[in-house]
């Protein structure tokens, strides 16, 4: 990876300054059953396309922010600071019918 990422605070910086923390997931609002919990903890959509994800400016201003990145090209379409409501993941993916833990 050698693209530039724009920190909402600091502007465009080399991606090596940042820590990547994966796609945005939605924490269940109610106590989940085992299947829902497993889905939340272990399953990722892993899209080939635009993905909403967490980044942390570790060697910079130390802020968490969200980026929309195309996983195929590493093109970053936009970045933003998280707003007060819990960030929503993109529409539900089809989860394969696999046994739980």
């Amino acid at each position: 990876m050698s693209f530039l990422l724009t920190c909402p605070n600091c502007g465009p910086r080399d991606v090596n300054e940042f820590a990547y923390a994966g796609e945005v997931t939605t924490r269940p609002s109610e106590p989940p059953d085992l299947r829902e919990l497993t889905k939340y903890v272990y399953f990722r959509r892993n899209v080939a396309g635009v993905q909403r994800e967490w980044w942390y400016h570790r060697f910079g201003c130390e802020i968490w922010f969200l980026a929309d990145r195309d996983t195929r090209t590493n093109e970053v379409l936009g970045v933003e600071l998280p707003v007060a409501a819990e960030p929503k993941a993109a529409p539900e993916p089809a989860i394969p019918d696999t046994p739980a833990v």
């Binding site: 820590a19 923390a21 924490r27 130390e62 968490w64 922010f65 998280p82 960030p87």
Partner: peptide, 13 residues
């Protein structure tokens, strides 16, 4: 731990 705290608070505000 600082990152962990800050991350959760980025969600919880």
């Amino acid at each position: 731990v600082v990152e962990w705290f800050e991350w959760w608070n980025a969600v919880w505000h």
